[in-house]
Design a protein around this nucleic acid. Sequence first.
DNA 1: GTTGAGCGT
Length: 300
Amino acid sequence: MMQPSATGMVPPPLDQQQQQQQQQQYQYQQQPPQQPPQQPSQQPPPPQPYMMMPPAGHPSQAPPPPQMWAAHQPLPAMPQQAAPGGGGDEVRTLWIGDLQYWMDEAYLGTCFAATGEVANVKVIRNKQTMQPEGYGFIEFYTRAAAERVLQTYNGAIMPNGGQSFRLNWASAGEKRADDTPDYTIFVGDLASDVTDYMLQEMFRGRYPSVRSAKVVMDRLTSRTKGYGFVKFGDESEQIRAMSEMNGVFLSTRPMRIGLATNKKIATGQQYQKGCREALSYRGLELISDEMVVLLVRGLA
DNA sequence: GTTGAGCGT
């Protein structure tokens, strides 16, 4: 029921209705574009990131779609969760993740300026250090606008050229009450060019229950860490994939697949149930609850 | 480089 609607096809271009009202909606754009703050020891921010935003006076009617930044990369269609809020149109905010430290509100404002539909941008920061936490929220005037952006920008290359947009509906994470667990595998040995989309497509064709695929990125370098995760809705597909896909080539290297350890702390019955099932798959069903916790924490 | 820190005022 929560089957992703995205198909991996290149989505249609953005609606062109609000082409006229350009970028003046942001409070952030009143101020002159500032260079990203210098990173102490890490790699320098990309040169002139703001120069890479689409030209304001695009000749054609349509706002330049993000494809122009992603010329050599297929537009991914990441699996998105159904928009929360049921049928209402009150949800108009997107969540954005994988942000670098210098990616502030002003930067994000420029990223979506061409849509002309951004009502507000917020980057979440640590209260003490004021360092960005790596994610933020983009509110649009309409839910439809948010949906268009989600479809067209998600997975496209960000204007700095180094990584792709990671977008989803805001609060998508908290609506997981329908006790449908994820069955996740770990995929290691990934080549450096493997993207979420490539990983997803590798599995989706063969395993329809694939819910998402994520390649883990280093926040500081914006490079892949060489491993990722694929989530299945169906446990039998997860188990099948672990044996069938191990050693299969993705890009230039064979994948190494393992059972994913849950990133969350071992709490809650649902989680332990999942762990128990996972362990049971390994023939370890006769263990205590305490043992489950210990195993999960890697202490046993 | 081999187990993601991804939901706020």
